[in-house]
């Protein structure tokens, strides 16, 4: 029998990343206000909410991608393995290696399939060919793409289908052995079959990685995530076990959003 009231977890999972009182501004505009939330280790956290609610801003804060936006400023802290990633002393290149990202639109480099995956590894240092080959293969296998491309690694990545390109981008993110993978609408430009492959991949990857995914597709959030966080107008309204958030949320605004009563 399913209990819908959230039972306390026997062992609360370790939080891999924890935002405390995080606010982000773009110039004068407040994008998110005092958000406190943890990403449980090796679980999938889905961030949902209407456009402009701050979910992507939150996601991009976790590896400081917002730094690239002029006028972006942070308050509060984001602890990653105990260290505040907002600290000026943090090496953002290293941070982004450890907290990788996959975007809405697949963006392979105009290079071969092999070079796309090897790219990040070559940036760090240049490993011996055999090691590079092994890591490219491992990453492509983790991204469930290896069987489809193993005989054509020298071909242009741009010749792949949209779904394959997206999995290639995931392989590229995995190649540098991140600990956290952030996904911003990773399947919104894909057909249902390619979407299902990405979702299946997310299930497999959570054995190894902590994952946060932004999605506009609520059924997708329901399917892939363990924990769901609902953002609205820059605030974190509610966060909880996904099954609970979609059957019996506590907050009226969450209820209205997941039942389609907004706007």
């Amino acid at each position: 029998m399913m209990q819908l009231t959230p039972a306390p977890l026997p062992n609360p999972p370790k939080l891999k990343v924890e935002a405390k009182g995080l606010s982000v501004r773009y110039g004068d505009k407040v994008a998110i206000k005092s958000v406190s939330i943890g990403l449980p280790e090796r679980q999938v956290t889905a961030l949902i909410g209407p456009s402009g609610c701050g979910k992507s801003t939150f996601l991009r804060s976790l590896n400081r991608m917002n730094d690239l936006i002029l006028g972006a400023s942070y308050e509060g802290e984001i602890l990653f393995e105990g260290q505040n990633v907002l600290d000026r002393a943090v090496d953002v290149v290293d941070l982004r290696r450890r907290v990788g990202m996959v975007f809405q639109k697949s963006n392979p480099f105009p290079k071969t399939i092999y070079e796309n995956v090897a790219y990040g590894l070559r940036l760090a240092d240049v490993p011996p060919k055999a090691e590079l080959d092994a890591r490219v293969e491992k990453s492509l296998q983790q991204a469930a793409l290896w069987d489809e491309v193993k005989d054509r690694l020298g071909e242009s990545a741009l010749a792949l289908s949209g779904g394959q390109q997206q999995r290639l981008c995931i392989a590229r993110a995995l190649a540098v052995e991140p600990e956290v993978v952030l996904m911003d609408e990773p399947a919104s430009a894909l057909d249902p079959i390619a979407t299902a492959k990405i979702e299946e991949l997310i299930h497999e990857l959570k054995a190894l990685y902590t994952i946060a995914i932004v999605t506009h597709n609520m059924q997708q959030a329901a399917r892939v995530s363990d924990v769901t966080a609902f953002f609205y107008m820059g605030e974190l309204i509610e966060v909880g076990p996904t099954a609970h958030m979609f059957t019996n949320p506590r907050e009226k605004r969450t209820e209205d959003y997941v039942t389609g009563k907004f706007g």
């Binding site: 609520m218 059924q219 979609f246 059957t247 039942t259």
Partner: peptide
């Protein structure tokens, strides 16, 4: 419709 929350209930 893939109903959720109170609709699903």
């Amino acid at each position: 419709r893939q109903p959720a929350a109170s609709d699903l209930r």
